[in-house]
Simulated assay, not measured.
Amino acid sequence: MERHFKIGTQAYGWSQIAARDGRDWGSSLEWALDQAEQAGLTSWEPLLSSPVEVRPIAEAARRRGLELHSVYMGGILHDPEVAPKTVADMTEIARRAAEHGTRLAVVNPNPIDWNSKADKSDAQLAYQLERLSELAEALASTGLMLCYHTHDAEMRQGAREFHHMLVGTDPARVKLCLDPHWIYRGAGNSQLALLDIIRLYGARIEEIHIRQSQNEIWDETVGAGDLDYALIAAEIARHGVRPFVVVEHALEPGTPNRLGNVEAHARSRRYSEAVFAPLFAAS
Rank of each mutant, 00 (worst) to 15 (best):
1 M>I: 05
3 R>K: 13
3 R>M: 10
4 H>N: 08
7 I>D: 01
8 G>K: 00
15 S>T: 06
18 A>W: 04
18 A>C: 15
19 A>W: 10
23 R>A: 03
27 S>V: 14
29 L>E: 15
30 E>R: 13
34 D>R: 01
36 A>P: 00
38 Q>A: 15
41 L>Y: 10
41 L>E: 11
44 W>L: 04
48 L>T: 02
49 S>I: 06
58 A>C: 13
58 A>S: 14
58 A>E: 12
60 A>G: 07
64 R>A: 14
65 G>W: 07
68 L>R: 04
71 V>L: 08
73 M>S: 04
74 G>D: 09
74 G>H: 04
76 I>R: 05
86 T>N: 11
88 A>R: 13
88 A>C: 11
90 M>Q: 13
90 M>R: 06
90 M>T: 10
96 R>Q: 08
97 A>M: 06
98 A>Q: 00
99 E>L: 13
100 H>Y: 14
100 H>K: 09
106 V>P: 00
108 N>L: 11
109 P>F: 01
113 D>E: 07
115 N>L: 11
116 S>Q: 11
118 A>G: 13
118 A>Q: 14
119 D>K: 08
121 S>I: 07
126 A>S: 15
127 Y>M: 02
130 E>A: 08
131 R>L: 04
133 S>A: 09
133 S>F: 01
134 E>Y: 15
137 E>G: 15
141 S>L: 14
142 T>A: 10
143 G>T: 06
143 G>P: 03
145 M>I: 14
147 C>N: 14
149 H>E: 13
152 D>C: 03
156 R>T: 12
159 A>W: 01
159 A>H: 05
162 F>K: 06
162 F>N: 02
164 H>I: 05
165 M>H: 07
167 V>C: 07
168 G>Q: 09
169 T>K: 03
172 A>K: 06
172 A>P: 00
173 R>N: 01
173 R>Q: 03
173 R>V: 00
175 K>Y: 04
177 C>L: 11
177 C>R: 00
181 H>I: 15
183 I>R: 00
184 Y>I: 04
187 A>K: 11
187 A>F: 05
188 G>I: 05
189 N>T: 06
192 L>C: 04
194 L>W: 08
197 I>M: 13
198 I>P: 00
198 I>R: 02
199 R>M: 10
200 L>G: 04
203 A>C: 10
208 I>P: 02
216 E>N: 13
220 E>I: 08
222 V>A: 09
223 G>K: 07
224 A>K: 04
226 D>K: 03
231 L>E: 05
231 L>P: 00
232 I>T: 10
234 A>Y: 02
236 I>Q: 05
239 H>E: 09
241 V>T: 15
242 R>S: 09
243 P>E: 10
245 V>M: 11
249 H>Y: 03
253 P>A: 14
255 T>E: 07
255 T>F: 12
259 L>N: 14
260 G>I: 08
260 G>L: 03
261 N>W: 04
262 V>W: 09
263 E>T: 12
265 H>F: 11
266 A>K: 12
268 S>Y: 02
268 S>M: 06
268 S>E: 02
269 R>E: 09
271 Y>W: 15
273 E>C: 07
275 V>H: 06
277 A>T: 12
277 A>F: 09
280 F>Y: 14
280 F>L: 07
281 A>V: 12
282 A>P: 03
